[in-house]
Design a protein around this nucleic acid. Structure first.
Lengths: 240, 240
DNA sequence: TAGTGGTCTAGACCACGGG
DNA sequence: CCGTGGTCTAGACCACTAT
């Protein structure tokens, strides 16, 4: 009766739930079957179910509340890297005003494989969004974003004139993973004008490509005036 | 028989071992008592001990091997951020040559609270090390480091003329945590000359302050030519 | 081969908190 | 109240591997 399929019982339960979360079948806030229900489903003891759910909670994928049950957590990326990039939240914390201003919006077929090489079917349509993040009227970042419309078709009908697409996308696409590249550069004339800095001044640039199960959702480049922005990260041996 | 001290049994075991690792009483590679030994020490069942050790392993603090036992793991920071910064490893992987060249070495009392504000007792002596990281003869980074000699007294007698201090320090000080700040800037004349780039070119700068239990070990600034270096990070909801 | 971790059980009592 | 998770037990068998 013991599992012998090269993968242990609790690992199978863990993997099943993880997959359902990653694919979006279970979305943030959704309830996960209780331990007793999972005992019946998998035909194992409560300890084994508990081990899987405890590990999922430790990994930040679910949250468990007594009497209420277990629920899919919000993606951790929203709580770490995004916190650095969520200007609205930053501004609110500091008691300052935040505004997003859309500069350009267009839909075009994806022709040139710009930026990093990522596998996209030919003919894919992409929504290009350029905008400025301003705090107290000062431009903190120029955002140049591409949204793959086959991955997020709802974006086609969404108005981004005052709503930053970052948060909107996080609500639309559950549980993604992302590659971040941080680099530096110099402001050309056009960028300098948009950011309100001198031509030739230093820029801090964050490129992020967000995927969901090998499917690219969005690519974004956030261009910050080096004088106004830094990335701060805390690392310890336990949580990376 | 049951723990009632507001903290559960496995949490106490977890915390005890964690503390011994963080304080350096247990160092990377050291063996942790076996589950049976810990059962006797704490007077609890093997499942409870196992829960604590499994959690420590999941957190990356220990590694468990059948028949051999459980051992203190190498700090994760060495496996993530350091991998990006360990030029010797990067060069070896790419089949290219690596060299570290010491530019300056001096010991001085810590007077000005340079860089970030960190609490250091007055009169603390600090070892200043400036050096260049070169790959195939090209300068990839200028490193400016401060080592707190009361935290790492052995550094006073160590020769850093060809050995990069980063790896050496990792071996000396087990299990630290660190704050990273990534920024951008422009090369002044002196920096440009050392890096072999034009004055006014873009720089990518990483500042890292490494601590151990609230005691600062070392501060380092790695200054990269923006054209030669980027930071790449992979994030997913599970591992942050 | 023997010691170690990996897994699992079939219960139990307790703490919390929503209804 | 009572369903949920949190914790714990006293075993058991198995898999791996250092010796």
């Amino acid at each position: 009766m013991s599992g012998q399929a090269a993968v242990s019982f609790h690992q199978r339960i863990y993997g099943d739930i993880e997959r359902r979360v990653l694919t979006g079948e279970l979305r943030p806030g959704d309830r996960i079957p209780s331990e007793h229900e999972l005992m019946a489903v998998y035909g194992c003891s409560r300890m084994t179910v508990s081990k899987a759910l405890t590990a999922l909670a430790a990994a930040g994928m679910i949250e468990r509340r007594r009497r209420a049950g277990s629920f899919v957590a919000r993606p951790r990326i929203e709580r770490t890297v995004m916190e650095i990039q969520d200007f609205a939240v930053e501004a609110a914390r500091a008691g300052r005003s935040y505004a997003y201003r859309l500069l350009a919006r267009r839909i075009e077929p994806l022709a040139e494989p710009e930026g990093s090489a990522f596998p996209v079917p030919a003919g894919t349509e992409v929504l290009r969004l350029d905008g400025l993040h301003q705090i107290d009227g000062v431009v903190m970042a120029l955002e140049r974003r591409s949204v793959m419309l086959d991955a997020v078709p709802h974006a086609r009908d969404t108005d981004f004139t005052t709503t930053a697409p970052g948060r909107w996308l996080l609500q639309q696409v559950p549980w993604s993973d992302a590659v971040h590249v941080i680099s530096a550069g110099l402001a050309d004339a056009a960028t300098a004008r948009l950011l309100g800095v001198d031509k030739g001044s230093a820029l801090l640039i964050l490129d992020r490509e967000t995927r969901q199960t090998a499917l690219t959702i969005t690519q974004v480049r956030l261009i910050h005036p080096a004088a106004l922005y830094r990335f701060v990260g805390h690392f310890n041996p336990g949580n990376g």
